[in-house]
């Protein structure tokens, strides 16, 4: 362990942005005020702050993730989407982002309600449990589905509230949330618009939705 290296800020993470994060970034206007809930190692935030001039903040559950983010100069706090969103005032951010986290929250309905309250726009991405591979694994094999976007076994998955695209659509309608735009990513990472929800629900592995309340 070199003492000198320990003191320096961490370097920017190398490599291109993950495909779903790049698509989320494209939905965010430059210079916007953004809260990334469940920001992980800060890859999206770092891109937004450094390349898009965004005023970005993050919340992350894992302390290791938070420390890595702050050491890279990002404004991130240790916190929990389930309990800590209520502190923020309404319309505090231009965009609130929740990527690949909704299904791991204890109360997704409440979290979604809080997100559209504190963000003028909200971007949510989640794995689609209606994808044909998931359905096939359960129908044909009779086992809990594992797929490239849901790799964990049933006994150690953090995902406790999985949903399909149609389920998600129902919840937004119930909460009075408008889906302004939605994309699905298929297994090859190709993004498509949602002309048909039913079709998207079969072939989309992940869904990215841009939401606003009302």
């Amino acid at each position: 362990m070199s003492a000198a290296a320990d003191l320096r800020p961490r370097a920017r993470s190398a490599g291109p942005l993950r495909r779903d994060l790049a698509l989320i970034a494209e939905m965010i206007p430059s210079g916007a005020r953004v809260l990334d809930v469940g920001c992980g190692d800060g890859a999206l935030l770092e891109h937004l702050v450094h390349d898009r001039g965004v005023d970005g903040r993050g919340i992350e559950l894992s302390q290791a993730g938070v420390n890595a983010c702050v050491a890279r100069g990002l404004s991130v706090i240790q916190g929990d989407a389930d309990t800590d969103l209520k502190d923020y005032p309404s319309d505090a951010f231009d965009v609130a982002v929740l990527s690949q986290t909704l299904q791991a929250t204890r109360a997704p309905r409440k979290v979604l309600g809080e997100l559209v309250r504190i963000g003028r726009r909200t971007i949510v991405s989640f794995p689609n449990f209606g994808h044909w591979r998931v359905r096939w694994r359960l129908l044909h094999d009779g086992r809990m589905p594992t797929t490239p976007s849901l790799p964990a076994e049933w006994y150690d998955t953090p995902n406790i509230h999985l949903c399909t695209i149609l389920d998600f659509e129902d919840l937004t309608a119930e909460l009075g949330i408008t889906i302004e735009r939605a994309l699905v990513l298929d297994s090859r990472g190709t993004a498509r618009g949602l002309n048909s929800m039913r079709l998207a629900n079969w072939f989309g592995e992940q869904c990215i939705a841009l939401l606003r309340r009302g």
Binding site: D55, R57, Q63, V66, N67, C69, V70, L74, S75, V76, I77, Q78, G79, D84, D87, Y88, P89, A92, F93
Partner: peptide
Amino acid sequence: VHSLNAVAANVSFVEI
């Protein structure tokens, strides 16, 4: 931190 969030301040928080 909670109070700073309530005013949407720019805040980082690390527990070592």
